[in-house]
Measured scan of single mutants.
Amino acid sequence: QEVDTIELTRQVKEKLAKNGICQRIFGEKVLGLSQGSVSDMLSRPKPWSKLTQKGREPFIRMQLWLNG
């Protein structure tokens, strides 16, 4: 299904801030990505339709983390 990447990243940033989790830790533990990649993804999320399967994976992980 289509994911609203802008809304998703907004919710993730909100939860990170609320729980005092830094992007570096979130990136390493949840997404398996560097802090730079995570920062870029959270500040400039690409539309779901423009992402490859590999590009979608971190957003799917974010969704699971939010719902977890």
Rank of each mutant, 00 (worst) to 15 (best):
Q1G: 14
Q1D: 01
Q1S: 14
Q1M: 15
Q1L: 06
Q1H: 01
E2R: 07
E2C: 03
V3D: 07
V3L: 13
V3Q: 12
V3T: 09
V3P: 09
D4K: 09
D4V: 01
D4L: 01
D4I: 01
D4C: 05
T5G: 03
I6D: 04
I6Q: 14
I6G: 11
I6E: 12
I6L: 07
I6S: 05
E7G: 11
E7I: 01
E7S: 15
L8W: 07
L8D: 15
L8G: 14
L8M: 14
L8Q: 12
T9K: 09
T9I: 09
T9D: 07
T9H: 08
T9V: 14
R10N: 14
R10M: 14
R10P: 07
R10F: 04
R10D: 09
Q11W: 02
Q11E: 05
Q11G: 07
Q11D: 04
Q11C: 03
V12T: 07
V12I: 03
V12L: 03
V12E: 09
K13I: 03
K13A: 03
K13F: 00
K13C: 02
K13W: 02
E14G: 07
E14H: 02
E14R: 11
E14V: 06
E14P: 13
E14S: 08
E14D: 09
K15L: 11
K15A: 08
K15H: 05
K15F: 07
L16Y: 04
L16V: 07
L16H: 13
L16S: 12
L16R: 12
L16F: 05
L16C: 11
A17T: 07
A17D: 13
K18Y: 01
K18W: 04
K18L: 07
K18E: 13
K18S: 10
K18F: 04
N19R: 15
N19Q: 14
N19T: 14
G20E: 03
G20M: 05
G20D: 04
G20Y: 10
G20I: 03
G20K: 14
G20T: 10
G20P: 08
G20R: 11
I21A: 02
I21H: 02
I21M: 10
I21G: 02
I21V: 08
C22E: 07
C22H: 13
C22F: 08
Q23L: 12
Q23C: 04
Q23A: 07
Q23W: 12
Q23K: 05
R24F: 03
R24T: 04
R24P: 01
R24L: 05
R24N: 13
R24G: 05
I25L: 10
I25E: 15
I25F: 15
I25C: 04
I25P: 01
I25H: 15
I25K: 12
F26D: 00
F26W: 14
F26P: 01
F26H: 00
F26L: 03
F26A: 01
G27W: 01
G27H: 07
G27A: 15
G27S: 13
G27F: 10
G27N: 06
E28S: 13
E28W: 10
E28V: 06
E28G: 11
K29E: 14
K29C: 08
K29A: 05
K29Q: 13
K29I: 01
V30W: 09
V30G: 15
L31M: 06
L31A: 04
L31T: 02
L31S: 06
G32Q: 08
G32M: 05
G32A: 10
G32C: 04
L33V: 14
L33T: 11
L33A: 11
L33S: 06
S34N: 09
S34C: 10
S34M: 12
S34E: 13
S34Y: 09
S34F: 13
S34A: 13
Q35S: 14
Q35M: 12
Q35T: 13
G36M: 11
G36W: 13
G36Q: 14
G36S: 12
G36R: 14
G36V: 10
G36F: 12
S37H: 14
S37N: 12
S37D: 15
S37Q: 15
V38Q: 04
V38D: 07
V38Y: 14
V38L: 12
V38P: 03
V38W: 15
S39V: 11
S39N: 14
S39I: 14
S39F: 07
S39D: 12
D40V: 03
D40K: 03
D40I: 03
D40Y: 06
M41V: 13
M41Q: 07
M41T: 10
M41P: 04
M41Y: 13
M41E: 03
L42F: 07
L42K: 12
L42H: 07
L42C: 04
L42G: 04
L42S: 05
S43M: 15
S43P: 04
R44K: 15
R44I: 07
R44D: 15
R44E: 07
R44L: 08
P45G: 03
P45I: 08
P45C: 09
K46D: 07
K46Y: 11
K46W: 04
K46N: 02
P47V: 11
P47G: 09
P47N: 03
P47I: 04
P47T: 06
P47S: 10
P47E: 11
W48C: 00
W48Q: 00
W48T: 00
W48M: 01
W48P: 00
S49R: 13
S49K: 14
S49T: 09
K50D: 14
K50M: 13
K50R: 08
K50G: 06
L51H: 00
L51W: 11
L51C: 02
L51R: 00
L51M: 09
L51F: 04
L51T: 01
T52L: 12
T52D: 15
T52P: 03
T52E: 03
T52A: 12
T52Y: 08
T52G: 06
Q53T: 13
Q53C: 13
Q53H: 07
Q53D: 14
Q53K: 15
Q53F: 06
K54T: 10
K54M: 04
G55A: 13
G55N: 00
G55W: 07
G55R: 03
R56Y: 02
R56Q: 04
R56G: 01
R56L: 02
R56A: 02
E57H: 06
E57F: 04
E57P: 01
E57Q: 08
E57D: 07
E57I: 10
P58F: 13
P58T: 14
P58W: 13
F59K: 00
F59G: 00
F59A: 00
I60Y: 13
I60P: 00
I60H: 09
I60A: 11
R61G: 01
R61W: 01
R61T: 09
R61Q: 09
R61K: 15
M62V: 02
M62R: 00
M62D: 00
M62Y: 00
M62I: 03
Q63R: 13
Q63P: 01
Q63M: 09
Q63Y: 11
Q63C: 02
L64A: 15
L64M: 11
L64P: 01
L64V: 08
W65N: 00
W65V: 00
W65G: 00
W65H: 00
L66N: 01
L66R: 01
L66I: 07
L66V: 05
L66G: 00
N67W: 11
N67A: 12
N67Q: 10
N67V: 06
G68L: 03
G68F: 04
